[in-house]
Amino acid sequence: MEIAENAALVVVDVQKGFDEADFWGPRNNPEADDNIASLIDVWQATGRPVVFVRHDSRKPGSPLRTGYEGNGFKEYVERRRGKGVGAELLVTKTVNSAFYGTPDLDAWLKGEGISQFVVAGIQTNMCVETTARMGGNLGYDVVVAYDATHTFDLEGPFGWRRSADEVAQASAVSLHGGGFARVVATKEVVESAG
């Protein structure tokens, strides 16, 4: 796998509110936070651009709502912000896609001459998947570091309930099999980018 010299790392919604297990329920990929941190470290060490995305929920009871402690980035992300030598961008959003945030991610990536990006963060099947799908639709070469994402158990229609692992795997199959993105392990990305 080739990671471009100017490939961006898009770190999606790694916020404290996602640690509130009583709200979200069981999660998968316990190693996701370590893998996200390792990706940020490699991107910053190699001078590549990093985009930090924050979800500012408008729902009153959401752990990600603006003004609530859970809206802030997890400590390991906050400690790394502003530490790289490459470009850095903060995007805030109220919907699933980082491409519908402020400032305009697509315009920024194009302005920086970036055609490839790697996605990591929370939740695999929500904001990570939506951002990856839109990136693919917009013509970017999108890579999803699967084990640098996590999600939660989910109930859908007809009383169907799926575990976090099942939901994440379905998301990965849709993204990879559908041609929106290449879904790979963090180790592959780190080795290619380092």
Results as ranks from 00 to 15, higher is better:
residue 188 E to A: 02
residue 8 A to C: 10
residue 114 I to N: 07
residue 41 D to S: 02
residue 88 E to I: 06
residue 102 T to F: 12
residue 39 L to T: 04
residue 104 D to A: 09
residue 185 A to P: 00
residue 4 A to W: 03
residue 57 S to C: 14
residue 66 T to W: 11
residue 24 W to N: 09
residue 32 A to S: 05
residue 159 G to A: 05
residue 175 L to H: 01
residue 106 D to W: 04
residue 77 V to I: 14
residue 191 E to H: 07
residue 49 P to D: 06
residue 119 V to P: 02
residue 70 G to P: 04
residue 174 S to M: 14
residue 19 D to Y: 12
residue 98 A to Q: 07
residue 151 T to R: 14
residue 110 K to P: 00
residue 164 A to G: 07
residue 108 W to R: 11
residue 149 T to H: 14
residue 114 I to M: 08
residue 177 G to L: 05
residue 116 Q to W: 01
residue 34 D to V: 01
residue 55 H to I: 13
residue 173 V to Q: 04
residue 141 D to F: 01
residue 159 G to T: 03
residue 55 H to N: 14
residue 55 H to A: 12
residue 128 V to M: 02
residue 137 N to H: 02
residue 27 R to K: 10
residue 183 V to Q: 02
residue 127 C to A: 12
residue 49 P to V: 09
residue 124 T to S: 14
residue 28 N to M: 08
residue 111 G to Q: 10
residue 90 L to Y: 10
residue 124 T to M: 10
residue 123 Q to N: 14
residue 101 G to M: 03
residue 132 A to T: 01
residue 29 N to T: 08
residue 51 V to M: 12
residue 32 A to D: 07
residue 134 M to N: 03
residue 104 D to T: 07
residue 184 V to Y: 00
residue 188 E to H: 04
residue 124 T to G: 13
residue 149 T to D: 15
residue 171 S to Y: 00
residue 179 G to I: 00
residue 26 P to H: 11
residue 75 E to F: 04
residue 65 R to A: 15
residue 14 V to S: 07
residue 88 E to M: 04
residue 137 N to T: 02
residue 7 A to C: 10
residue 93 K to E: 05
residue 31 E to M: 05
residue 81 R to Q: 06
residue 155 E to M: 12
residue 5 E to A: 11
residue 182 R to L: 00
residue 124 T to I: 11
residue 59 K to Q: 15
residue 33 D to H: 05
residue 1 M to S: 10
residue 75 E to M: 08
residue 64 L to M: 14
residue 183 V to C: 05
residue 159 G to R: 06
residue 23 F to I: 13
residue 144 V to K: 02
residue 121 G to P: 15
residue 80 R to S: 10
residue 102 T to W: 10
residue 24 W to V: 11
residue 54 R to E: 14
residue 14 V to Y: 06
residue 122 I to M: 14
residue 98 A to R: 02
residue 128 V to T: 04
residue 81 R to P: 03
residue 88 E to T: 07
